[in-house]
Write a protein that binds this DNA or RNA. Sequence first.
DNA 1: ACAAAAGTGTTTAGTGTACACCCATGT
DNA 2: ACATGGGTGTACACTAAACACTTTTGT
Lengths: 236, 236
Amino acid sequence: MAVYQHNTRILVALDCIIFGFDGESLKLLLIKRNFEPEYGKWSLMGGFLNEGEDLEEAAGRILYNLTGLRNNYLEQLQTFGTVYRDPVERTISVVYYSLVNIADQDVAAIQAHNASWISLDSKPTLIFDHDQMVTVALQRLRYKAALHPIGFELLPSKFTVPQLQKLYEAIYGTQLDRRNFSRKIMATDLLLSTGEKDTNSVTKKGQLYTLNSDRYRKYLDGYYTFLPELAELSGG
Amino acid sequence: MAVYQHNTRILVALDCIIFGFDGESLKLLLIKRNFEPEYGKWSLMGGFLNEGEDLEEAAGRILYNLTGLRNNYLEQLQTFGTVYRDPVERTISVVYYSLVNIADQDVAAIQAHNASWISLDSKPTLIFDHDQMVTVALQRLRYKAALHPIGFELLPSKFTVPQLQKLYEAIYGTQLDRRNFSRKIMATDLLLSTGEKDTNSVTKKGQLYTLNSDRYRKYLDGYYTFLPELAELSGG
DNA sequence: ACAAAAGTGTTTAGTGTACACCCATGT
DNA sequence: ACATGGGTGTACACTAAACACTTTTGT
């Protein structure tokens, strides 16, 4: 024990960037704080790392407390650690980002935390360095979704190809060609036809598909260019 | 201050994965520990985060102490935080990876730390979770180098195209076609001819180039497929 | 019948890849 | 002269991108 004695122990926080998709735009689950510090302002959902708790475990706990969801896509983004990022006390924050299907959420838990889904386009200014965290998370999401099929994590278990396309368009803020997109996705063999049709659509009903889990896992490991127009998405 | 009172403060360490290239193979700068804990075993270079010090700053300090180098490519990799990863005391480790030009190193500083450059192929088993850190770092390097020209960071300021190719081959553990590689790189306009020729080569001397810094910065922001054979490099 | 959205087909341009060939240097 | 390695050119296959057309459904 003696060996580490002189070193400073520091508060370790975790913050979660929770992405969702409502069929039209990409959303974040944000909290209107009814607690200190920064009472009344908007922030990401966060918490502190407990003794005897793995980092990943803590991130999962925080996500579960807010949404009632477990086993979602959850990936470490980056750790933020400038000295004065939290004015109360020096705190470093390990940030995770998560992709959830809005339909599965626990509405009561979300209300209890005073949280709401906010469109990325109309995001308010957040406390501390949370805006920066969101910027980095969106960049990472764009990066990953271009090479791996993680977009599916944001959709319900049954979905149509046009819905998937709308999602990609929301992530990248661009328009995609229907014909080319559909062909590209179909070529991956990631979709399994259910035979059913979308009942929500107003005019022609699209075919509902589910994800082929075996193939999905392979694509997560490997690389595939879901969006070859990568050059455009530098800025973030 | 009262608001954060009950939360546990934790030791925050930093570990640096330092990549180098000697013209033949990809190397890591590793330390044969002459201090506790794990005296006599191999590890990454590390240290603790000080009060009043940014994370990035601390990583830079650790790198500087070992190599005498500043302003190298240094990027945060990931934070490792399972409970018992350090048997002495609960410690989370923020890991950075760095790309250095071996020729620029401060040999005295490296010897003083009992460090040596070890080929990735003949890497010994490292302490704690350091092997896992290296695995993740290599994956990240492959990922990044395929889309951004960060490979240049590992080469001396003047280099030949075949040297650059050898580097890419070392990073990915594959063979590349000379002709196609050369054309691909030339098309980027990243190289500036110096007019000089390599004096080391035994037979024909290759042309020496330097990096076009303006173009380099653009390529760092954007995306470019330096290696389209991405699908192959899943395993890591 | 018509509008709106879903699905399928085709053509063209560009990029990746596999080659064959020439040039420069030291022995 | 010859071996070794650096540099340039060309042909073919494949993929991305632009565009036309048909089908399904609700009003």
